[in-house]
Design a protein around this nucleic acid. Structure first.
Length: 477
RNA sequence: CGAGGAGUAGCGCAGUUUGGUAGCGCGCUUGGUUCGGGACCAAGAGGUCGUGGGUUCAAAUCCCGUCUCCUCGACCA
């Protein structure tokens, strides 16, 4: 017991020192390590496997929606960036630029993509000629680079992995419709795959993507009550089409600019699920993305038949489509229990001579920390499958309830400050003026995350004028 | 970019105040006993103390420079 306490103290207290808890967890569970260059991270196999699971699930949804995958170059001519005025202004401070190559200074500097609207706009301009070419809908999985001042694994790194989807439509209505559709897709994905509730909605002008007409976001509530922007979709109108000459001849024979939109989620999602579900023992991984869904720990492994029984169960579960793994290392059972709990494996099956003799298995649930030795070994596939689904639902319900309880409607900056100080989101009326938004930020260090689609508030919390929107305010990562 | 903190064995740290043969825990290797909540014994391997200069008979330790990382703020997926 004393040693177990010592183990727990290896990671910082989640309640009193959340930032340190996060750093401890991502490093000690071997999700990531720091790279040698400031702000870079190595995504280690355990972390990358989570990303691959996210990719697989999302990619299937994109395909289902009719989007094709492609790949565009990492390097973008600097001149591309300057073609869209707001875009260059927004991204200029954080782009990395290649000025030399092949031992010589380049004629034109090349930026390492911070996002690919410009180069994809350029290519789409070449490919779109007729209304028959539309819609054009492509997605790429790639890395991007944004030279951020301060960084943190998954949440903000100089280089990160993401997907960026880009579409051109003949009409603004269609492009807008896809902007909403992708936001819904992200929300559904967050719920069913990450077991994570999110708030979705339109961003304010201040918070929107550089060069967009409108930005929509999904925001997740972290354990400490701060918000994490976990995905965005952007409606560009004709801004980028005009900058990159994306034109087509319409059915009526006239030349028209297309309407574009884009959408993306990144490895930040991994940070989001860690900070949503984690607890004092470490990670709690949602079953759909957990690299190992069931770890099988042999007890008294050298006793006859124990290891064989574990291997046989592993094979059966794998056949049933469960990511199962026997931990046959030399570590003691107690060590394995703690290690895999920290690593967030949803289910642990303990198999020892006693279980085998009774035809049972002992099952431990990571999310509830409950242990039950009453499961029949003969029926393992069904029971494990059911448990994994139950965990999914329970994780979502628990997070959803917590989020719901921690959204407080407020009516003044003072109330808002108090709400966010106590780890809540604040919901409030807003007149729509930048001045009031800025005032909230200065007063409470909280920003407008998204507009509530369910607009009910009547007056602005700052100026008392009629409210044009109801806004979710929060401190954000 | 501002304010703090830290660079000593794979990891975590002590040693720096007051200069004098580089240490501890974990991990690792080998052998053995263990195994139902981080087991134990024995024997080993492993370090130009971030880096450059200076002071000194002598520097991990004092001085100057420099690089990197972490945390917190301002900016951002």
């Amino acid at each position: 017991m004393a040693k177990n306490e010592q183990f727990v103290s290896q990671i910082a207290d989640i309640e009193t020192d959340f930032p340190q808890w996060y750093t401890d967890v991502v490093l000690k569970t071997k999700l990531v390590d720091y790279g040698p260059v400031k702000g870079t991270m190595v995504i280690r196999p355990y972390g990358y496997a989570i990303w691959e699971n996210i990719q697989r699930e999302l990619d299937a949804r994109f395909r289902e929606a009719g989007v094709e995958n492609a790949y565009f170059p990492l390097l973008i001519p600097l001149s591309f960036m300057t073609k869209e005025a707001e875009h260059v202004e927004g991204f200029a401070p954080e782009v990395a630029v290649v000025t030399h190559a092949g031992g010589e200074k380049l004629q034109e500097p090349l930026v390492v993509r911070p996002t690919s609207e410009t180069i994809i706009g350029h290519m789409f301009g070449k490919w779109v000629e007729s209304w028959r070419d539309l819609p054009l809908r492509q997605n790429q999985w790639c890395n991007v680079m944004r030279w951020e001042k301060t960084t943190r694994p998954f949440l903000r790194t100089s280089e990160f992995l993401w997907q960026e989807g880009h579409s051109v439509y003949a009409t603004g209505e269609e492009a807008e419709r896809e902007t909403f559709a992708m936001l819904r897709l992200y929300g559904e994905f967050a719920k069913t795959v990450l077991c994570m509730p999110v708030l979705t909605g339109r961003k304010t002008e201040k918070e929107k993507f550089a060069g967009a007409v409108a930005t929509y976001g999904m925001e997740a509530m972290m354990h400490d009550g701060k918000s994490l922007q976990s995905g965005t979709t952007h409606y560009m109108g004709q801004n980028f089409a005009k900058a990159f000459d994306v034109r087509f001849t319409d059915k009526d024979g006239t030349l028209k600019y297309g309407y574009t939109m884009s959408y993306g989620v990144s490895t930040r999602l991994i940070g989001a699920l860690i900070m949503t579900h984690g607890d004092r023992r470490g990670l709690v991984l949602p079953p759909p993305v957990a690299p190992v869904q069931v770890v099988i720990v042999p007890i008294a492994a050298k006793k006859e038949g124990v290891l064989e029984a574990c291997r046989s169960l592993e094979a059966r579960l794998k056949r049933a489509g469960v990511r199962a793994k026997v931990d046959d290392s030399d570590n003691s059972p107690g060590w394995k229990f703690n290690e895999w709990e920290m690593k967030g494996v949803p289910l642990r099956v303990e198999l020892g001579p006693r279980d085998i003799e009774n035809g049972k298995m002992t099952v431990f649930r990571r999310d509830t920390l409950e242990k039950d030795d009453g499961y029949a070994l003969s029926d393992a596939e069904t029971q494990i499958g059911e448990l994994l689904r139950t965990i999914c639902k329970d994780l979502y319900d628990r997070a959803e309830r917590r989020m719901r309880e921690r959204i407080l409607t407020v009516h003044s900056p003072e109330e808002l400050l108090d709400a966010v100080n106590r780890g809540n989101f604040a919901r409030a009326g807003w007149c729509g003026e930048r001045a009031c938004e800025d005032r909230v930020k200065e007063f409470a260090q909280a920003t407008a995350r998204v507009l509530d689609e369910n607009h009910t508030e009547t007056v602005c919390l700052c100026c008392g004028k009629p409210a044009k929107h109801t806004v979710f305010f929060a401190r954000a990562y």
